[in-house]
Structure formats: structure tokens, C-alpha cells
Design a protein around this nucleic acid. Structure first.
Lengths: 211, 211
DNA sequence: ACCTGAACACCGTTCAAGT
DNA sequence: ACCTGAACACCGTTCAAGT
């Protein structure tokens, strides 16, 4: 229907082609596609089509496909850090909180498998991206802090907290990767049971009780 | 130079175009390319060129690119199993042997990072490939057997050996993945130190000595 | 039986052009 | 300033054709 000439335009404000928040829309669409079709199913052409924009519009907002994936990974580490700290604090910043933190880590990966794979993809591991590095380090720091705090209360042996953190990170990361790749018993509750078992074992060890 | 008509042909026996062992040559070339340029750098065209054969000759021997990668992964698990069992037996099938096994696992990944990534790539995790499944299970079984044998000597607590194996596998896999992705302190000896630390901790736990 | 070469559909990326 | 559409180089894969 025609509009009277000179009347105030009814179209959405100040974006001649599309919404002004194209960057956010592209990011959301990319994450959606990754969740549905995996990282290999993500194409820049597909992202453009999902948002209703040309194949190349994306290059106004991201340098290339790697830059888009790096932003996805950065957001993932941010969500992971928030989840870890939330579990730690909600659990009472002690032994129970630390176990909740480990379970929250594995749960995050199981609930967002494709997102988690992007976060730890080999292609992004060595790229120079300050924001990604910062968020990745932030998530790891949540683990280091929790360990140090437990040490200050005598709950964890006084080894270097960084080494303890690497050890525990490797463990939950290994469980997470094997689980989302289907290399562990498939039931989700079995993975949760393995996670709890692993957290028990890192506290008490595998040596027989009579050692 | 011309050959006398009717003389016995000097060319290599019974392969009109290339060596008869094209399949092995393709596999070797693929592994070589993966080691040098990573999995993403592997193209079927590149494999053909490396062997001196057309881009599509490969399809006589492998159904598609995935089949080629599955064979590469299968060979990797075979080598890994042999290395694990070798370390276990050479170390005396006891506590020292089990620690050597853990170190051998991480060392294999560090020495063959791209090969290791293929073995655990998400794309191959869910594919139905009996030989790949068999070799993967074989490598894992070496771990289960070593645990059960230690349990029979009272060296490891009598938990379900499968659960213990999943736990330890996740740990060494996590260390291996983080290390080859450059997410741990970069020196190789630091990774070895972390591996030894981790193996110590799974035996004695992280609880303080006074617990 | 085994390999070649052209062809197809698809991809990331570049760039001149539009508004 | 932001987006479009054609174009380029590259890829996996198919298929008719060669020997």
C-alpha cells in the first residue's frame, strides 16, 4: 500500500537495507547453524541466507570466516566462565562447590557440543586474537582461583595451583571431548557418573584404601 | 630409446600405468601431507599429485575422502596400541609399567599431533567403520588389561576396571589434546612433568597428606 | 581392471558497482 | 557507510572415455 508523500516513514529507523545490528544477527545465525549442522556445516553463504542478506555482506563485520568462528568461541568461553563461577559459588566455595564446578564444565560441553568444539578447535588454538585469549584465560582462571581458595583452607594439597589446574582441566576436558564424540558409554547419566567418579578419584586417588 | 620388437619388456611387472601398490603409496602420501600441513591441508588432488597420479585415481582404492582418513586413523590406533603395550611390558607390568604407559600415550600424541587429531576427529567418531572401531577398541583394551592386572595384584583399588580405564583415558587424552593445541606451557618437558604429576595424583589423589 | 580428463556443484574471498 | 552480484581459484565427486 502506498504512503502519502512527505509523511513520516514507517519503516524501521535508519537502516537502508537491513537492521543495524547485522553483526549480532550474523553471530546468532552462525551459532544456530553450528548447533544444528556442526562446524563443517557452517558456510558464509548459509549464514547470509539465514539472515536474509547477501553472501558477502558478512565481510563488513568480520575479516573472514576465522574471525567469525573466533567470536563464536569467545562467547563460548564467556558463558563457560560464568557457569563455572556460578556453580562454585552456589556450591559454597568448598569441596562441594568444586565438585559442582567440575560437573558444570562437563555439562556445558554436553549441552553445547558444537559450540564446545569450536572453542577447542585446532584451527583457532594458535591464532592471535586478544579477546579470545582473554576470555579463554578467564575461564581457566576461575579454576585456578577455586583451587587456590581451597588450598588456603587446607582442602587441597599445597602443590603449585597452576599445575593442579592444568591437571584437573585436562581431566574434565578429556571427559567432555570423549563424551561429545560418542566415545564413552552413551547415556548422559553415565557420563555424569564418570564425572563424579573422576572427581572423587582426583581427591582420594586410585591407590587401594589400605595403601 | 627404442626397444627391439618382441624383446621381453623391461618395465616393472604388470602395472600399465603405475606401481601396483598405489593404495599404500596414497596412504603414505596422505599421512605425509597431514604431518606437514595438517588435516585441513589435505586435498585429494594434492595426494594424487604427490604420488604422480591423477586427481581421481584415488577413487579406485578409497570410497571417498572420509574412507582415506579412516584408514589413516586406523593405522594410528594400531601404532598407539603397540606403543602402549610395549611401554607396559618393558616397564615390568606393574606400577612403573603403568606410568610408562601413560607417558607413552602422551608422547605418541606429541610426536604425531596431526595423526592424533585425525584419530580423534569429530567427523570420524560416529562413522560406521568396523576396522577403525576394532583398532580403536584394541588400543583402549590395552589400558583396561593393564588396570585389571594391577588390580589382581592389589596395586589399584577394586573399582570397575572399565570405569577406571575411562577415567584415566580421559586424563591422558585431555593432556594430549591440550598439549598439541598449544594450550599448556609450551616446553615439551613441562608437558612430560605434567603427565608425571597427573599420574602421581591419580594414584594418591589431591587431598592433603593429613586428610 | 585401472587410470585420465572434463565437468558439476559448492566453497571462501575479492572487487567494482550500487544506494 | 553498508550492501550486492559477478567473478576467481579451489575443492570433492561423478562419469564417459581411454588402454
Amino acid at each position: 500500500m502506498a504512503r502519502a508523500a512527505g509523511s513520516r516513514p514507517l519503516r524501521k529507523p535508519r537502516n537502508r537495507y537491513h537492521h543495524g545490528s547485522l553483526e549480532q544477527a550474523l553471530l546468532t545465525a552462525a551459532l544456530h547453524i553450528i548447533q544444528q549442522h556442526g562446524v563443517d556445516g557452517l558456510t558464509l553463504r548459509g549464514v547470509g541466507k539465514a539472515v536474509g542478506v547477501s553472501q558477502t555482506a558478512l565481510y563488513r563485520h568480520f575479516a573472514d570466516k576465522s574471525a567469525l568462528l573466533r567470536r563464536v568461541a569467545t562467547e563460548g568461553f564467556r558463558k563457560l566462565r560464568i557457569g563455572l563461577i556460578g556453580a562454585w559459588e552456589k556450591g559454597g566455595r568448598g569441596r562441594a562447590g568444586f565438585e559442582a564446578m567440575g560437573e558444570a564444565y562437563v555439562r556445558f560441553a554436553l549441552e553445547n557440543p558444537s559450540h564446545y568444539r569450536v572453542m577447542f578447535s585446532a584451527a583457532l588454538a594458535t591464532v592471535d586474537d586478544p579477546e579470545l585469549t582473554h576470555e579463554g584465560a578467564g575461564a581457566f582462571q576461575a579454576l585456578v582461583d577455586a583451587i587456590a581458595e581451597q588450598q588456603s583452607h587446607g582442602l587441597v594439597r599445597p602443590d603449585p595451583p597452576l599445575q593442579l589446574a592444568h591437571f584437573i582441566w585436562a581431566l574434565v576436558h578429556g571427559i567432555a571431548m570423549l563424551a561429545i564424540d560418542g566415545r564413552l558409554p552413551p547415556q548422559a547419566n553415565e557420563v555424569a557418573a564418570l564425572t563424579r567418579f573422576a572427581i572423587d578419584r582426583i581427591r582420594t586417588g586410585v591407590a587401594p584404601a589400605s595403601r
